[in-house]
Design a protein around this nucleic acid. Structure first.
Length: 498
RNA sequence: GGCGCGAUAGCAAAUCGGUUAUGCAACGGAUUGCAAAUCCGUCUAGCCCAGUUCGACUCUGGGUCGCGCCUCCA
């Protein structure tokens, strides 16, 4: 079964063929690290995390590169975002970078997002960027004006092919004061001359300055993935000018195609408008994790197509929380039931295992179809319903449950990350939020489960003696510290409240 | 104004030219010492107007509305 991808460059769904069979070169635009990340970032990076995980699950070797922008990304008033952060927090610019880069990785770890294989920083690749700019000047695609180098959009006839714009059609300078020194109003800066007091500056053939925002992605993707690579990802909100400029720079410099497939994620909205820093309507990932489980946040993100917009709301997150609980409860029940399950008769086993394999196939064909996570999820929900029925009826044999457990682990945990991994491996509640760090050590976990089991046994004695008041007290006390007891046909099980 | 994307039941959100999406919520029932979990059943769809077709939520055209981008954002 082949993989399809909606290629933004062609505006259609096409079969995905990597340059090298079984090997995928993936680049995704990363964050500018000058403040805490919000749920908009989570949507994009969780989406690509699932793309990555699915490609790897299917046996591909994937090199995943995601830049860290730590210089050159300017605000409206021309100030560098990093410098603004430094001034705000009264620290060195590179302290801002360190602080928020760490914060970003903390958040991504907590959300179970796989780390990129390479996280190149713009400030660490200034020579590569300078080299590329020199190449562009040599080929007549860029020009130096008093120490600032501009890219000439008229020199690249395909400028606008990704976003569907044409240079002639754009009324440039309508809302931003055009600098006279540009040959064309749409020309953009590759290298910016630094005022003498500018904190971030490097020597260059054009004097001291710093790189423009777009050039880093071109230079670093070239360095780590090659001039032409397979997939370029990011949020649609960067389609113009950023992604367009990347293509222009890279293809003009190397005279060959840049990324073969463009995948762009839909915007996260709040009450119908974009969640963004400038509007101030954002929820940081750290705040969201104080209220919602990582699996719930992932389920919320994955219950819509990656390229569609999604609307953030408490109702949507509550719904996702319930959904995550449902699927996790079923998976946990399967694991618990395995312990006491017996072998089944051949006919029933065959029937149920065939059913499970069909769900697996449904999941796979959904994911193969442009990573349709919501459709893939529906297979897991349907499967859960059938498994619950089988366990209710007692027809779920050890063979069936083992198979089900494998599917939950592979598809639910390993691919989508919406089902908690086995105890001790996954995330654990810590303080007032969720964090990937400090999973409980094995010894403490063992002690905890033994203690809880003792209380369960005590409660069972009370129930046998019809002392329900005592039994309920034990359950209520445990509930207070987040331990939920559930009586089932196979006895009492417990879970830690989410 | 230009470019792009979208409009599905109470909410969220997929698929599909003719057959139950799915999740959440609601209602009825089963199960249960009580809970929880689970199961069974029920109820709500396809913005408007044309067209293509034996048949359209699904294809085509027009309209209306919404969002994103055109200026920093994943």
């Amino acid at each position: 079964m082949s993989q399809t991808i909606y290629n933004v460059l062609l505006r259609e769904k096409v079969t995905f063929k990597p340059l090298t069979e079984g090997q995928v070169m993936l680049y995704v635009c990363g964050p500018t690290v000058y403040d805490n990340s919000h749920l908009g970032h989570a949507k994009t990076y969780v989406s690509f995390d699932v793309v990555l995980r699915w490609l790897r699950y299917n046996g591909n070797k994937v090199r995943y590169v995601q830049n860290i922008t730590d210089v050159g990304h300017l605000l409206d008033d021309g100030e560098d975002r990093i410098l603004k952060g430094a001034r705000r927090e009264k620290v060195e610019p590179m302290e801002i970078v360190e602080r928020y880069m760490r914060s970003y990785f903390e958040d991504m770890d907590a959300l179970g997002v796989t780390r990129p294989d390479i996280s190149p920083r713009a400030s660490a690749h200034v020579p590569e960027q300078i080299e590329m700019i020199q190449e562009l000047i040599a080929k007549g695609h860029a020009y130096d004006v008093n120490g600032t180098v501009y890219y000439s959009v008229e020199s690249f006839k395909e400028y606008g092919k990704l976003s569907g714009r044409r240079v002639e059609e754009m009324e440039a300078g309508k809302r931003v004061a055009v600098r006279d020194e540009k040959r064309h109003p749409m020309d953009f800066a590759l290298w910016i001359k630094a005022p003498s007091n500018h904190v971030l500056q490097w020597p260059s053939p054009w004097g001291r300055g710093y790189p423009g925002w777009h050039i880093e992605c071109s230079a670093m993707s070239n360095k780590y993935l090659g001039a032409t690579f397979d997939i370029h990802g990011g949020g649609v909100d960067n389609i113009f000018p950023h992604n367009e400029c990347e293509i222009a720079q890279s293809e003009a410099a190397h005279d060959e195609a840049f990324a073969n497939y463009w995948m762009l994620t839909g915007t996260l909205l709040v009450d119908g408008v974009k969640m963004s820093k400038s509007l101030g309507n954002f929820v940081t990932i750290k705040d969201a994790l104080k209220q919602y489980r990582p699996e719930a946040l992932r389920l919320f993100i994955l219950s819509g197509l990656y390229r569609s917009p999604a609307d953030f709301s408490a109702a949507a997150l509550d719904s996702a929380t319930k959904g995550a609980e449902r699927i996790n409860t079923a998976a946990r029940r399967v694991r618990n039931t395995i312990k006491s399950a017996k072998s089944g008769d051949a006919a029933t086993n065959e029937r149920l295992i065939t059913l499970l394999d069909q769900y697996h196939m449904r999941f796979a064909s959904a994911m193969n179809d442009d990573f349709n996570a919501p459709l893939a999820l529906s297979a897991l929900f349907d499967m859960s319903k059938d498994l619950n029925s089988a366990m209710d009826e007692g027809t779920a044999s050890i063979e069936v449950l083992e198979r089900a457990n494998t599917i939950y682990t592979e598809l639910g945990s390993q691919v989508l990350g919406v089902i908690q991994s086995d105890i001790g491996i996954g995330v654990r509640r810590q303080g007032s939020g969720w964090s990937a760090s400090a999973p409980m050590d094995a010894e403490s976990a063992e002690r905890e489960s033994t203690l809880i089991q003792m209380l369960i046994d005590m409660r069972l004695e009370a129930r046998k003696a019809k002392d329900f008041a005592h039994a309920d007290t034990i359950r209520a006390q445990l509930s207070k510290i987040g331990v939920i007891l559930e009586d089932g046909p196979q006895g009492t099980t417990y879970r830690i409240r989410s």
